[in-house]
Design a protein around this nucleic acid. Structure first.
Lengths: 314, 314
DNA sequence: TCATGTTGATAGTAATTTGTGATGCAAAAA
DNA sequence: TTTTTGCATCACAAATTACTATCAACATGA
């Protein structure tokens, strides 16, 4: 016996009509017929007298319906209890975010979060990965969002999503005509990258190194924001790479210059990280679930190849 | 959210141990782990704090558990309501049974039925099919058990089970050596049959007629009970056919003389029949479900060929 | 500090359940 | 009578649930 079946019984009891009840339950009429037959069989009784028009409850059916109302109401109350409790999750919570994730992810989830958990005071800091690790360990942060894996003994990671890299190719560039790029189409020397210390840049460096051991000493430009990189690329100073979520905000005219990589696409793994002590675990989980809900639609899970921020040490 | 999931939550809350709780629920531990993760995800909260040893309820988990107890208890009460109501099903009920079904089916289900429905006074009559049809129509019977299909406008049929025929071959007989019989191995002239009017006999006649149009006028013996037929067969007077359920009660020494037919086995369809007016439908359904429960183990559904009592008119 | 035992999580797969669209069939309505 | 309404049934698809095998984290005692 399932709660769903009881809801179906209540719907038929209310509408005295299977077809109409099925609509109200957002299923088809055969589904309702079969589920109600199933519960009747399990209980070994007839709940409805189908020989009457319109359909009638049997004597025992009426008693079942009364009890079913109880059960369904009590079940619904579980959700109320949870909602009420969520309002009670509160206190300060310090969350670090790396710069290349901050501008795209934060606006997507912040609104949802503060609506669901009004008692939590989120203190958000933009920090690079090294700073985050230090602050997590000394307790100045409760959790953070960063590219992973980090493989740090003291820190736990929950993967939030995988974000592919998309190439931004100015119109005058040689590979602009290609619809899909290979990793080998990239030439390290002409890629515009963010300033050192941003883990995203570390990832890119590895991406290229793995293809050709090009001259690393000769970067033409380094900048602090993707917007600058895009403008520089448009000026003919090279190409650049953007994380997928960032490309969603581009102007339509700029979107034409985006090129996807063939699968497995290079991608970064973005995780929620926190000390193993697991303080404020309820809030951490609240953040995780809120982001999961928001990102689900934006990121399609694809065949990706993770660019690890770790490899910079190699 | 399902009732099962809530039961799993209660089990873990009680035992503070997934493995043990899984045993108590008669499922494996991964099943429990996953179902509890699922409900936690659906509610977007953590019910258990797995970082503690032994496992602890979270604050909200405790509230969920309290409410889950309500729901599960209320759900269990549905079964009580049904049981109580069954005790209230009462009154007289006249049930006709044809002679070839009476001795085997009745002892199997009568005990179960009177235990479940103590308020019903069953009045059982052994009658042949024609008598049953008349009495159903004139209201002297509420329902009956007979071989079907009858194809009578005024009478409804619910199939209870299909019962194969088994041949009883005395040791000295020619086909005794065969392990499985073809229908064509039967010789109408040497088969011992019940006296005319028993629908079972009608079925047998058709079974043979369909193979060879043997001389119908020359039956050597007709008797009122299978026991007599068996004894006569053992005396070398011929072979006979027994309905499957009847063969279960034979002595081991006699069981050695049974021979199954190859599939599709000849069989009869046994149904619960009642007037279309559907009076006392609750009791009719109670009988149906009781017999279904009892017969399930005894009759394996096989590839069968139905011998219809109708064909006697052909 | 190193095997070892517990205990919960995960992955991959099998079994079961639930749902669907097409169709049947009986009773009511036109 | 014909048409319409309304539930049941069938065959198949999708989703769910459970299982086996295995892993990882942690605790325990040598």
């Amino acid at each position: 016996m399932t709660i769903t079946q009881l809801q179906y019984v209540l719907a038929v009891a209310e509408h005295k009509n299977f077809t109409l009840a099925a609509e109200k339950c957002f299923v088809t009429q055969p589904t309702l017929s079969m589920q109600i037959q199933k519960i009747e069989e399990e209980l070994n009784i007839l709940i409805f007298d189908r020989s009457k028009k319109p359909i009638q409850l049997t004597d025992i059916g009426q008693k079942i319906v009364n009890q079913a109302k109880n059960i369904v109401n009590e079940a619904d109350r579980i959700k109320d209890i949870v909602e009420q409790q969520k309002g009670f999750i509160g206190g300060e919570f310090r969350l670090g975010i790396i710069p290349t994730i901050m501008p795209t992810l934060l606006p997507m989830f912040l609104n949802n979060f503060i609506k669901k958990y009004p008692k939590v005071k989120l203190l958000i800091e933009e920090l690079n990965t090294e700073e985050i690790i230090v602050k997590l360990k000394n307790g100045h942060l409760d959790a953070a969002i960063a590219a992973t894996p980090l493989e740090d003994e003291k820190i736990k990671e929950i993967v939030l999503y995988f974000e592919p890299f998309v190439a931004y190719i100015p119109e005058q560039h040689a590979v602009f005509g290609k619809q899909e790029l290979e990793v080998s189409d990239l030439n390290l020397n002409e890629i515009l990258l963010l300033q050192d210390g941003h883990c995203f840049r570390d990832g890119i460096l590895n991406l290229c190194k793995s293809v050709s051991d090009a001259d690393q000493s000769n970067f033409q430009i380094q900048s602090g924001s993707f917007e600058t990189l895009i403008k520089l690329a448009d000026e003919g100073l090279g190409t650049t790479l953007l994380p997928y979520l960032h490309t969603l905000d581009l102007k339509e005219s700029d979107k034409l210059k985006l090129r996807n990589f063939k699968e497995p696409k290079p991608a970064r793994e973005v995780s929620l990280i926190y000390p193993k002590s697991e303080l404020k675990m309820q809030i951490i989980d609240a953040i995780r679930s809120t982001i999961a809900g928001v990102v689900k639609g934006a990121i399609v899970f694809q065949n990706v190849q993770i660019i690890s921020p770790l490899q910079k040490k190699a």
